[in-house]
């Protein structure tokens, strides 16, 4: 599915769901408003018409019930794909996620794996009112048993979602709302591997480590730095769990300087984990401490103030400037 202007992230996700539904009769979608409406972001547009309302099921407005029902469906051998309407609306399902989805394989010694994909639109930058802009990835990444992935490109929107649905692990699939309408020229067709970070821009002077909605910001920062003579490498993590230490560490060792960039709050966030891992593994290659550029440690602000919260090019370049170049 693509138009004259190329393929958007929404279209890529829609195609991934359609292809999965076509190829595997066990794949079932369930969520709020995903049928006739096609989802509030239209990611499931046309799927109920093509595959029927049972395989693209409009559920009652009850997130724990949605995920709990998906658990039971997976126990019977189906491969449910759940849509949570917004990041903050997924919190009622957290008990099902933490106590059952994440643990069922482990507590049954591998006898009852749950191949459930949980799609969650996340992050801000879209002018959303309260409870529509949370970045909740750290909660999920901190829960053993879950894979947590997030695409930053249209191609990965397709490729990672296909991989998530095909995976026998439960996968939290975080969709950056801000990138839903980003587009690429060619419609994506390839499955992307879970657990592999990718270098989006090579660089020799410092390495930006980022994911999801912050990738385009980092690429713009790298472009700006290049104009001033600094070549920044940009790594797109893609998969928060499993974490690709190898690619990340190789990219950091190559430059000796690193900045982690994400829009969720910094305290006890992914950046803390990444900075610690990089320091533990690359200490002797580092010319400066690993820095973080993140959202502020406040509840997500009202939309008219969100640009102060979100990491921007200036804050990233400020951090790069603080990487002890004087030595």
């Amino acid at each position: 599915m693509s138009g004259a202007a190329g393929t958007t992230m929404v279209q890529a996700l829609n195609t991934a769901l359609r292809d999965a539904l076509r190829e595997d009769p066990d794949v079932h979608l369930l969520g709020e408003d995903i049928g006739a409406l096609g989802g509030v972001f239209r990611v499931t547009d046309g799927l109920a018409a093509e595959f029927g309302t049972q395989r693209c099921l409009d559920t009652p407005l009850a997130e724990a019930g949605i995920l709990g029902t998906a658990v039971g469906m997976a126990m019977y051998g189906l491969r449910p794909v759940v849509e949570m309407q917004f990041d903050a609306f997924a919190y009622p399902a957290f008990e099902q996620l933490a106590s059952h989805v994440a643990k069922m394989r482990n507590r049954t010694a591998g006898r009852l794996p749950l191949p459930v994909t949980i799609r969650i639109p996340y992050g801000g930058g879209i002018g959303g009112v309260e409870h529509h802009s949370d970045s909740s990835e750290a909660y999920y990444a901190h829960t053993p048993g879950l894979h947590v992935v997030t695409p930053a490109t249209v191609a990965d929107g397709y490729g990672l979602l296909r991989a998530a649905i095909a995976s026998d692990n439960p996968v939290v699939f975080l969709e950056p709302k801000r990138l839903y309408w980003s587009s690429e020229r060619f419609p994506p067709t390839a499955v992307a591997p879970i657990g592999q970070a990718v270098v989006r821009r090579p660089g020799t002077d410092a390495t930006l480590l980022t994911y999801g909605p912050s990738l385009p910001v980092c690429l713009r920062a790298a472009e700006a730095a290049s104009a001033e003579g600094l070549e920044l490498a940009v790594v797109d993590l893609r998969s928060l769990v499993p974490f690709d230490d190898e690619t990340v560490c190789a990219a950091v060792r190559a430059t000796g300087r690193a900045v982690v960039v994400h829009e969720s709050a910094g305290f006890a966030g992914m950046g803390a984990e990444i900075a610690a891992r990089v320091t533990e593994r690359c200490f002797h290659h580092l010319a400066a401490p690993v820095l973080r550029v993140t959202g502020l440690d406040i509840p997500y602000p009202p939309p008219l103030l969100e640009h102060h919260y979100l990491p921007g090019v200036d804050r990233i370049l400020d951090a790069v400037a603080r990487l002890q170049w004087e030595q």
């Binding site: 019930g65 709990g68 029902t69 039971g72 469906m73 126990m75 019977y76 051998g77 059952h100």
Partner: peptide, 19 residues
């Protein structure tokens, strides 16, 4: 975790009926 398994029962029963 109390009552969480009731949701699973519903999902499994629903899946069986789909099958």
């Amino acid at each position: 975790p109390l009552a969480t398994q009731a949701c699973h029962a519903v999902g499994l029963a629903h899946a069986a009926r789909l099958r």
